[in-house]
């Protein structure tokens, strides 16, 4: 009897009812439907919901970071997964932001307890850590400077001059440099700080991307 015939015979037999075990919390994965449900709760307009989602991610990232948690990005994923799972399970959530904050706070308690245990363990392998060579550091620094130059060059002239003036050493200039910049732009110090913060965040992102690309091209060579 061939194997094919055997299989056909088996197909004709009544199949046993398989009882699926409940998905364990740790095995639960975010599906497209769950994610859509989550976005829908943020805003009915999908584009707006996407922007709110990104903002929520950033807020959560800084929350975990400011609370002293390691790997904030992983904890953000875990928080959003937990909330999405609750939604899938049918939980009624009135304020999604509040719910995320509450979930994140619980997660902090879980994580910090474990984290403090790890931190208290003796660092027996510390002596094996190879120190970075001066040369490697110098190369890295050179790369950062090159990327900084590249990214600064991409900024509009006004923005480039603003950020360089803002960060030039105040000791070099006797008067309060930043106040003088704010006055020259006809704005106040707070508005200037926020403007520079946004510029700097853009620049930092660009430099990070540039350095990563430089590293990858070096590896591929």
């Amino acid at each position: 009897m061939s194997l094919v015939t055997e299989e056909k015979e088996l197909d004709n037999e009544p199949k046993p009812v398989v009882v699926q075990p409940p998905i364990r919390k740790r095995d639960w994965k975010l599906s497209a439907e769950s994610f859509d449900r989550f976005l829908q709760l943020l805003d009915s307009d999908r584009e707006q919901a996407g922007a709110l989602y990104e903002n929520l991610r950033q807020v959560l990232t800084t929350f975990f970071d400011w609370r002293g948690c390691q790997s904030p990005e992983d904890l953000v994923d875990e928080t959003l997964n937990r909330v999405a799972r609750r939604l899938e399970e049918g939980e009624q959530i009135r304020d999604l932001t509040d719910y995320c904050y509450g979930t994140a706070r619980y997660l902090v308690l879980e994580v910090l307890a474990k984290q403090s245990k790890v931190e208290n363990e003796p660092d027996s392998f510390q002596h094996l850590t190879a120190s970075e060579t001066n040369w490697a550091e110098q190369l890295e620094r050179e790369r950062q400077f090159e990327c900084l130059e590249t990214c600064l060059a991409k900024l509009p002239t006004d923005d480039r001059e603003l950020i360089l003036n803002y960060f030039s050493n105040e000791r070099r200039i006797k008067i309060d440099n930043r106040l003088a910049i704010a006055n020259s732009l006809g704005t106040n110090l707070n508005a200037l700080r926020v403007r520079v913060h946004r510029l700097k965040a853009r620049l930092e992102k660009c430099v990070l991307h540039c350095c990563q690309q430089a590293s990858q091209s070096k590896i591929s060579k």
Partner: peptide
């Protein structure tokens, strides 16, 4: 002890340091 213990904030610190150095060198 606290602020620089975070990787994200330490990166931000390093970037600001580089930017300050660069800004000062351009003077």
């Amino acid at each position: 002890q606290h602020f620089l213990a975070s990787h994200r904030r330490h990166s931000k610190y390093e970037f600001t340091k580089r930017l300050t150095e660069y800004a000062n060198e351009s003077v």
